[in-house]
């Protein structure tokens, strides 16, 4: 079930991504309205990370495109923020919590300019929102996983974006931290901002997300959570592995996919 909207903030059109000729995302096509908190769910290796990387031009799609606010990413980059998976960086890097958060203001500064009072205020404000005031000067190597996650979130907040893509912001955090993070995200959407989050915990999907996108290499569903988060579609997203494999094999035979050159 795929529910499209008019005037989408995010438009993914016929997106296909292949890694070394192996299709990882196949014909993904959906639209998202503005001002919502959207969750992307799917099993490990379903292509969730790849999907938001494609939206941020971090991977080159085989075909299709992503439009944000009706434009290409290049035209609206300053309005879009990306929060990578926590484990993609070296947390032994010599930086303090405040250093990393301040980094979120760098893009708006451009060349040769360094953070001034306004930028520093912004960073301190973000620090408060994620409840890390006491950790301002702490080295990032001495943070817990949940604290690292909040540092990344705070860095995104200082970017002053209107659209956020976050890769598993709830991974490895305890209940209290999860509450803090969801509060921040809900505050963003209450100000009309759009937040797209890769999520793993099926228990909390209905509680957190206005909109749910289910993928398993293909798009299974996209729509208001109340309509698409059904047992059948969840089953199809997580259980249909065998079906999918036979389908891909079938496609290979009919040469819709480029033949392998070994």
């Amino acid at each position: 079930m795929i529910i499209h909207v008019d005037q989408p903030v995010v438009e993914v059109h016929d997106l296909t991504v292949t890694y070394e000729r192996r299709p990882v995302l196949w014909d993904i096509d959906f639209t998202l309205p503005g001002g919502i908190l959207a969750g992307i769910i799917g099993p490990n290796g379903a292509g969730k990370t790849t999907l938001i990387k494609a939206a941020m031009d971090l991977v080159v799609p085989g075909s299709g495109f992503v439009r944000l606010f009706g434009k290409s990413l290049k035209e609206v980059r300053s309005k879009v923020s990306y929060v990578p998976q926590r484990r993609t960086v070296d947390w032994d890097f010599p930086a303090s919590v405040y250093d990393v958060i301040l980094m979120g203001t760098y893009p708006s500064l451009g060349l040769f300019r360094y953070p001034r009072k306004a930028e520093k205020e912004l960073a301190l404000d973000a620090l408060r929102k994620v409840e890390l005031e006491d950790f301002k000067n702490r080295q990032i190597s001495q943070l817990s996983g949940g604290q690292q996650q909040r540092v990344f979130l705070a860095r995104a907040l200082t970017q002053n974006a209107d659209l956020f893509f976050m890769d598993e912001p709830f991974a490895g955090v305890d209940a209290a931290t999860e509450k803090t993070i969801i509060k921040v995200l809900q505050e963003l959407t209450s100000h009309g901002k759009t937040v797209v989050v890769v999520h793993h915990d099926l228990q909390s999907v209905a509680k957190y997300f206005d909109w749910t996108i289910m993928i398993h290499s293909r798009l299974i569903a996209s729509g208001p959570t109340s309509q698409v988060f059904t047992p059948e579609l969840v089953e199809k997203t997580y259980g249909g592995k065998l079906d999918l494999l036979t389908e891909v094999a079938h496609l290979l035979q009919t040469e819709k996919l480029p033949p392998r050159e070994d």
Partner: peptide, 9 residues
């Protein structure tokens, strides 16, 4: 520090 973030900006 963070290549993906840098590219995204």
């Amino acid at each position: 520090f963070d290549q993906d973030f840098a590219v995204s900006t």
